[in-house]
Design a protein around this nucleic acid. Structure first.
Length: 263
DNA sequence: GCAAAATGTCAAG
DNA sequence: TTGACCTTTTGCA
């Protein structure tokens, strides 16, 4: 389930479990065998996330992982299980293991190569001291629909299809509004909300947009039915006005919105 | 047993 | 704009 909060959570957890230790790195599936051999047995410095990219530093060699749409990590304590399926990369230290499957990218890079990837990314709401001004500079001079701009990782990074749909609904922004017609005030509110929402996602490990700001109530038990306003709710009544939620492909991705609330 | 779908990105035309 | 790619899970025959 890879939007930015997932990657930042992985960076935090993997740093906690593996940093400062010599990690046994293997590729049972074989497609990452050469890369794995380069860092196998080396000490891990830390794991960081930028947008949806994950970087694990072993000295000057950095393992870059991008989960893409299907990539997934599993992890556990004790001895690792028998490798099953297409197991791209496995990390093992005493007492912990983690497995990677299905990633779009998994490669050993140099520092300049990492810097080049990070340089292409727009501001990430989950980095320390988030600042969305650079993103607005791009949005404010674009005629493209704001729904597309929010998914463009060079404009801002970490937002995916769920946060995109939900943040537009929460601010009643019509998805096809040209970027340059979005006022700066509206952008500021939207960005601040993204920071709050994604931090909540990082804390809880899931995306709940319907009641994340109410700190007085426990929010552990929001059913998946109730977690979103519009995402994957095509044809079902809007939670605010009862209009059936609309869905359309935009640049090959499913876009969900309320025709009335976001008119 | 097979198709479809899934929170993503890139390159070809 | 379209298709290719990465893998697992779910649902329908």
């Amino acid at each position: 389930m890879p939007e930015g909060h997932t990657l930042h959570g992985l960076a935090r957890d993997q740093s906690q479990r593996f940093a400062g230790k010599r990690v046994q790195v293997t590729s049972p599936q074989g497609t990452f065998a050469t890369g794995a051999a380069l860092v196998d047995g080396q000490e891990l410095d830390d794991v960081t996330a930028h947008g949806k990219h994950l970087f694990a530093s072993f000295g000057e060699r950095i393992v870059h992982v991008h989960l893409g749409l299907f990539g997934k990590y599993t992890a556990g304590t004790g001895d690792p299980p028998e490798p099953r399926g297409a197991l791209r990369m496995r990390w093992v230290v005493d007492g912990y293991w983690t497995d990677l499957r299905g990633a779009t990218a998994c490669a050993v890079l140099t520092r300049p190569e990492v810097a080049a990837i990070v340089a292409r990314l727009g501001p990430d709401p989950l980095r320390p001291r988030p600042n969305g001004r650079a993103a607005y500079a791009r949005i404010a001079r674009s005629r493209a629909p704001v729904a597309g701009l929010l998914m463009d990782q060079s404009v801002l990074s970490g937002v995916g299809n769920v946060y995109r749909a939900e943040i537009l609904f929460r601010h009643r922004v019509p998805p096809y509004l040209p970027g340059r017609d979005l006022s700066e005030d509206r952008w500021r509110a939207l960005w601040a909300d993204l920071v709050t929402l994604m931090r909540a996602g990082l804390r809880t490990g899931r995306i709940v947009t319907t009641r994340p700001l109410d700190r007085s109530r426990p929010r552990g038990n929001v059913s998946s039915e109730d977690a979103h306003y519009v995402y994957r709710r095509t044809g079902r009544p809007c939670r605010v006005c009862r209009t059936p939620i609309a869905m359309q492909l935009l640049q090959g991705r499913k876009l969900y919105w309320c025709l009335t609330c976001q008119a």
